[in-house]
């Protein structure tokens, strides 16, 4: 089984290609959207490449849930994610740092949950499932 460091190395390569950034920019704490400039289209490209590189299957919305905190789903009130919402986020994004996010739970910060560290943990869990 690949170690997290090995996974990180491969993810750095995938993201450098998919997003046109330097390997060094792809640090564990880097956020996909804020730091690396990923757009929604890139998420699909990243999913394809993760599946190919790690020989895993990623279901739709499993890694990048769509319409997180969309209006009317009760996740947030007045642009702030509620306690219930935080619980749901923990369920849907088990590898993200929701505790860190809860310190400033603005809806616009939800995108910052998608970090390289989260990707590494997601892949580590997926690859150990299949072994």
């Amino acid at each position: 089984m690949a170690t997290n460091e090995e996974i990180l190395g491969k993810i750095q390569e995938i993201l450098a290609n998919a997003l046109g950034v330097d390997d060094e920019e792809v640090t564990p704490s880097a956020t996909l959207v804020g730091d690396l400039g990923a757009e929604s289209i890139d998420f699909l490209d990243i999913v394809f490449n993760l599946e190919k590189e790690f020989d895993i299957k990623i279901k739709r919305g499993e890694l990048f849930p769509e319409n997180l905190a969309a209006e009317g789903d009760g996740l947030a009130v007045d642009g702030i994610v509620t306690e219930d919402g935080l619980t749901k986020l923990r369920e849907r994004l088990p590898h993200a740092d929701v505790d860190g996010f809860s310190e400033d739970p603005k809806v616009e910060n939800i995108q910052d949950l998608f970090t390289i560290d989260m990707l590494v943990k997601f892949v580590a869990a997926k690859t150990s499932d299949t072994q």
Binding site: L44, D45, V47, F48, E51
Partner: peptide, 10 residues
């Protein structure tokens, strides 16, 4: 066709 899924393809 390299990849294909519900969301799109490559």
């Amino acid at each position: 066709l390299l990849d294909e899924r519900a969301e799109g393809g490559t």
